[in-house]
């Protein structure tokens, strides 16, 4: 857990980076700090592992004031990923990933095991171990950057625009992969980006920064539905509804099918009759669902999970989710 309590940071030259910032990142969740450049989001992140130190206020890491913790130990207990990737070019991929376990003086056999585990987690072939970072593409390099940050199994992970330097397609892939990894690890994540789309996609909670302060701290849905002021509205852009379609799953709007006893043949055949293209997965976004509905002869399509029909969805469901105000 990370807790900011009335934190102010003033640089020696008098620049006020952030003022009286307070927020909490609950254990195992992802909070995205988003805002224009120079808004203080990166400074806020650096306050967590003490790459910067607060002028006033307190940052609590796992309930303890981080200024009372040893700076080096603190950093070794927190994963850190940066936009420039910053891999150590003179070390092999394996040595890069092993950085923090080495610093913590783990036994060699444990380090080797962990490196294998992480290569697998990041979906990288095992022979990458002995290659040098420069031989790899940007996307692969950042996968290793993430693996290196996760190596000592930290409770907290800081990610400073981790996918910002990658091309759009690679970025999208890495975001999806990371969302899957996120489900498998119980890590508290603080993620910095300047892209609202990335924030909406990656965050459980989003903190929108304007110069030096948090304007709104809410869930993605809440921010899209109830932007607090004009700044937030402008920051989101004028295609709010469209963005909401991207982050809402079919499951949230569908009409659930009545529970039937398990093993009912009818249920299973309904899912398979129309083929895979016909049904919509429950965890698909409304953007996917609408695309399918528009291209289908049927006004209503089944929603499936693990091959079982769990409900139905039609355009009407999607519309009603957004309420009458969005219908005009």
């Amino acid at each position: 857990m990370i807790e900011f309590e009335n934190v102010t940071k003033v640089y020696p030259d008098g620049t006020k980076a952030i003022e009286e910032v307070s927020f909490t990142v609950e254990e195992g969740t992802t909070t995205v700090l988003v805002g224009p450049s120079g808004c203080g989001k990166t400074t806020s992140m650096k306050l967590v592992n003490r790459l910067e130190e607060p002028t006033e206020g307190t940052v609590y890491v796992d309930g303890v004031d981080n200024m009372a913790q040893d700076r080096i130990d603190l950093r070794r207990n927190i994963g850190y990923v940066i936009q420039e990737i910053g891999l150590f070019d003179h070390m092999t991929v394996g040595e890069n990933i092993a950085t923090v376990p080495e610093l913590r003086e783990w036994e060699q056999s444990r380090i080797d095991e962990r490196v294998d585990e992480l290569l697998e987690l990041m979906d990288l072939p095992g022979n990458y171990r002995d290659q040098y970072p420069r031989e790899l593409s940007g996307g692969q390099q950042q996968r290793i950057g993430v693996a290196r940050a996760l190596a000592a199994d930290p409770d907290i992970l800081l990610m400073d625009e981790p996918f910002g330097a990658l091309d759009p397609i690679t970025r999208d892939n890495l975001q999806d992969e990371f969302l899957e990894i996120q489900d498998r690890i119980n890590t508290t994540i603080l993620f910095v980006t300047h892209s609202i789309d990335e924030a909406l996609k990656m965050g459980d909670q989003i903190a929108i920064f304007d110069v030096g302060e948090i304007v709104q701290y809410d869930t993605p849905t809440e921010i899209l539905q109830n932007p607090k002021n004009e700044f937030v509205e402008n920051f989101i852009g004028d295609n709010r509804t469209f963005k909401q379609l991207a982050i809402t799953t079919v499951e949230e709007v569908m009409e659930p099918r009545e529970e039937r006893p398990p093993g009912d043949g009818d249920v299973i055949s309904a899912a398979t009759d129309g083929g895979d293209d016909y049904a919509i997965p429950a965890d698909a976004s409304l953007q996917v669902a609408l695309t399918k509905l528009l291209g289908s002869e049927d006004p209503t399509l089944p929603v499936v999970r693990d091959g079982r029909v769990v409900g139905t969805v039609s355009e009407r469901h999607v519309r009603s989710y957004f309420g009458p105000t969005e219908e005009s």
Partner: peptide, 17 residues
């Protein structure tokens, strides 16, 4: 490179390391 040094710092290397 600055990025290399920053990564080292962020991962908990002392100046000597």
């Amino acid at each position: 490179e600055e990025a290399t040094k920053n990564a080292g710092r962020g991962l908990g290397m002392t100046r000597r390391q």
